[in-house]
Design a binder for these strands. Structure first.
Lengths: 137, 137
DNA sequence: TTTAATTCCTCTAGTGACTAGAGCTACAAG
DNA sequence: CTTGTAGCTCTAGTCACTAGAGGAATTAAA
């Protein structure tokens, strides 16, 4: 049961060049090759890459994922490291959400006037208004 | 009333190399120079760069900001373009918020167990669990 | 079995929005 | 007039890919 890189790509939902990139970055070991030098993957790589993809979707950086993978292989002591990584990430996420919600409000304000009315442009105006609020935010 | 790039930097809250970068990218015109070839800015640049900074904080890409600046100079007809830019941006923002809120929930679940208890690591476990959910998300 | 289509290979370069550093020059304060 | 800070240009690095060139291998159909 060996997969070509294209098959693996479909299974795990990562593009082919991305998989090669992850190999290059040391997130997966270089796989076996066919006689013609093409990569051949087993189920282990499916698992590992799914882990990587899932972690990426959760917003972890490749370096953090590398750490997590290392931890998952030696799952004894330095588990708190994993918690630290996740906790730090949670805090950053909460901050991002807050910022985006403020952004959303502002964008709604900006783009709610109907653009068919050929009135003066609220987008430019709103952004221009903020030319004046130099010191805050 | 002319500013050096360092003074301008403090006024608008952008780093010095960032201002030079914005000049290079065509977001601001090349400013006047001192006899010794140093950049000298007036209030117009303060306004324009504040506009750029504000727009960046709202998450607009430099290309979009360039468009918006162009529109703000010719504020007559193609104002709907600005609305389109802002609307597109609003949609992307809403999508991002949703994704991050899902992420937040998952991270909370991941990191809520106390890491002092030397139990098995919930971070790795949780991420590993998701090795199995290959087809969805 | 041959051919054609598709997939794979490596390598280089590009993206966006900066950031860092080298090596040099200008300016302001004492 | 000297010293220290701030400025200059230019190149290269960051992150996580993505795109393309030019060629080889694999697979399916004829």
């Amino acid at each position: 049961m060996m997969f070509s890189i294209g098959e693996l790509s479909k299974i795990v939902g990562l593009k082919v060049p991305t998989i090669r990139y992850y190999e290059q970055m040391g997130l997966i070991d270089p796989p076996e090759r066919s006689r013609g030098n093409q990569r051949r993957y087993s189920k282990a790589e499916v698992q590992r890459l799914s882990f990587v993809r899932h972690s990426r979707e959760l917003g972890f950086a490749l370096g953090e994922i590398r750490d997590l993978l290392r931890l998952s292989v030696h799952p004894n002591q330095p588990c708190c490291d994993a918690h630290v990584i996740a906790q730090r990430h949670l805090e950053a996420t909460v901050a991002k959400i807050k910022k985006l919600q403020r952004l959303k409000k502002e964008l709604e304000r900006i783009s709610k006037c109907d653009s068919n009315a050929l009135s003066s442009c609220s987008v430019i105006e709103t952004l221009a208004d903020h030319q004046l609020c130099i010191s805050d935010h």
